[in-house]
Design a binder for these strands. Structure first.
Lengths: 235, 235
DNA sequence: TTTCGTATTAAAAACGATTTTTTATATATA
DNA sequence: TATATATAAAAAATCGTTTTTAATACGAAA
């Protein structure tokens, strides 16, 4: 009997949203601005300026910047302050090859992991479906978990998240964000880029996953990443 | 003619040592204490207590802790403060397998990278020689770059640092430190552990590297890591 | 004209006392 | 027993100030 359980359900589901510290809020805002280019690569990030801009004290600013340094989005120069990390094709290529090396392993291990395999597959089907339904050219807005970019991230992180190593997953997430930034800042020929058939690419990865074909999944995932890479070459 | 250059050389080489901010100093001190166990896993890291202990304000303490969170040595619980990360065999195994996956690639790529290959090999020979000459049971002291533990770290990081991805190298470094902490905190039967022939293990890795045998180098590196792993099993 | 030292300025780094907010606890009430 | 409520403790953050460091400008000497 689940009468008791039903009784306990409140009329409106009260989601106790985790209280976010100012630090976290500002971390997220700065991260967004760094990724979408509102804060330009190489730009000086003065504590005082940011303090005024976000209307806080120096504590949250300094701490958010410190976190972002470890994410590789900000550089700290001892006694000289913080600067938005520079971007270059060279850096992009480094991220690209690192992702290929690591995610090849991670997707393989994720598929070999039998625990909750079916639920994982089903979730990937759902995420892919949602991606197909959305416009992938929409504006980047990390606050909206239902946006294309956020579902895209979920899809890719989910693909590699069952390796059995949370360290690896976190590292992939960092590289994902780096790559996203490069995508926004370095791709000049947007028109050409948008001709790309991303839905097909995702479908190919998913199909191989569902066929339990690890080699195929690796191949299609790498192909997906390399297609992005090609768009960094042309002006 | 290099007379001019010679003239410019001062009698005593003045090494302009990078002025370290208090943040960096305290970061290093806290890191050391977390790795060697002076700060126990699970221990509450109160800002006020640490402030008094290190005789500073809250700024350097909070920032150092924020960095250590990203290193995985400290956990931050929103609105509840900082705690020294917990350790467990499970965590160790996660780090172990992650290192194996990643360093297998990294050492292979390092060996394939022809640029400065010979200088790299020579440096590894030197580092290995120094390791042989030192007592590997000596106390952990990261302030001394000439100590066994520090040379050991240099040897291992050097082995994998030529992959062409600084992101990868940094990740390996983080995992190295995690592993070091586990080694200090989780290995109970030290007597048994010390019977291990580390010098032989390093020599085997080095020999394969010098023979330009990538497969052998991978095999011996993994073997080295797995031997450490075995010592986490017995009480 | 170049080089070097010095003064000035600006910003980073850090302090410390204080306020606000949140969590943990202890106590009392239904 | 469960649920409020009051209290205490600590985290989070503010803000004005001080110390330290780096960047710049300027002028004197080689």
């Amino acid at each position: 009997m689940n009468v008791i359980n039903l009784k306990k359900q409140p009329d409106v589901e009260i989601v106790k949203l985790a209280p976010q510290s100012l630090i976290t809020q500002i971390y997220n805002k700065l991260k967004k601005s760094l990724i979408n280019g509102d804060l330009k690569p190489g730009e000086k990030l003065k504590i005082d300026t940011l303090k005024d801009k976000y209307d806080t004290g120096h504590t949250p600013i300094r701490e958010a910047l410190t976190s972002l340094v470890k994410d590789g989005l900000v550089e700290k120069i001892e006694q000289k302050g913080f600067v938005a990390s520079n971007v270059s094709i060279k850096h992009f290529n480094e991220v690209l090859k690192t992702r290929v090396w690591i995610e090849e392993i991670a997707i393989k291990k994720s598929m070999e992991n039998k625990e909750g395999l079916e639920a994982w597959e089903e979730n990937l089907i759902l995420l892919n479906h949602r991606l197909n339904k959305r416009d992938w050219t929409e504006k980047y807005n990390p606050e909206n978990p239902d946006s294309w970019e956020m579902i895209h991230k979920k899809f890719h992180i989910s693909l590699i998240s069952r390796s059995g190593s949370d360290y690896l997953t976190k590292f992939c997430e960092q590289l994902y964000d780096q790559n996203l930034r490069f995508r926004f800042l370095l791709i000049k020929n947007k028109k050409n880029y948008l001709k790309r058939n991303v839905n097909r690419e995702h479908q190919d990865i998913l199909d191989a996953v569902l066929a339990r074909d690890a080699i195929g999944a690796q191949k299609n995932l790498v192909k997906h990443y390399n297609i992005t890479g090609k768009h960094f070459l042309d002006k």
